[in-house]
């Protein structure tokens, strides 16, 4: 009986999460200006990089790509909790479990970051001449990295939405948290510059994965406390 009940409660949780994700997508579609604003921010930064640098060294190319994505994701994820009005949060509180709310936000933000990162990568390669020789590997690193960004920033957005001047605070709080992830990603991307990958950097990937797991666990465990006001 016990495993069956567990399965039922998990299924119920998943239903809530799915509804909340669909709600987020609908809201995003109704407020298209904010997402297109982020896209415009991303593309104008990439264009700015193109005008400022005539010719880039490969390491500079890699580092700048991740820095651009970093600041784009701060502004993209920041809105996920800060944008929600107090009354609407109270409404979610009455209809959904807090863990379902944070899980939905984590999944939604990672998916959104993935989309932004892939678009950003396409534009960046198109405009600035790419030194990448391992394209498939590079796409893999970009997707994993953008998921990490989405996961790490979601909880920071929730925390900073509780404080005043939250948009500035969000950047201050999350940048030190993301430094280890950023360094790992830059290191991983540098492997994509090689003509031939001899040793697949499995240890760095698993470290990145471990950091992701820590972030998700912390968010799921701590969000219920943050939520009640």
């Amino acid at each position: 009986m016990k495993p069956f009940q567990l399965f039922l409660s998990l299924a119920g949780m998943w239903r809530e999460v799915r509804t909340l994700i669909i709600k987020d997508i609908k809201l995003e579609w109704r407020q298209r200006y904010s997402f297109s604003g982020i896209l415009l921010y991303l593309s104008s930064t990439i264009f700015l990089i193109y005008i400022s640098f005539i010719e880039m060294q490969p390491t500079v190319w890699v580092t700048l790509f991740w820095i651009i994505l970093l600041f784009t994701s701060v502004s993209a994820v920041a809105k996920s909790f800060i944008q929600e009005s107090r009354a609407r949060m109270l409404y979610y509180y009455s209809i959904a479990h807090p863990r379902a709310v944070i899980l939905a936000k984590l999944i939604y933000n990672s998916a959104m970051m993935m989309l932004l990162a892939v678009v950003g990568m396409g534009l960046y390669i198109l405009i600035n001449q790419s030194p990448i020789s391992q394209v498939g590997y590079f796409i893999g690193v970009v997707i994993t990295g953008s998921i990490s960004f989405g996961l790490a920033f979601t909880m920071m957005s929730a925390i900073s939405s509780k404080a005043t001047q939250n948009a500035t605070l969000m950047a201050i709080l999350s940048l030190p948290f993301i430094i280890p992830v950023l360094l790992l990603l830059i290191k991983l991307t540098q492997t994509a510059l090689l003509d031939h990958i001899e040793i697949f950097p499995i240890r760095d990937f698993s470290l990145l994965f471990a950091l992701d797991v820590i972030m998700v666990l912390l968010a799921v465990l701590l969000f219920p406390y943050l939520w009640r006001d």
Binding site: M155, I159, K162, A163, L173, F177, P180, A210, L211, I214, L218, L222, Y225, L226, D229
Partner: peptide
Amino acid sequence: RRAKVSAVFNIMAFAIFIPA
């Protein structure tokens, strides 16, 4: 609210500080 929010942040900070 300060106490609650900073407690949550503090636990996250420690969980990242140890691996770092």
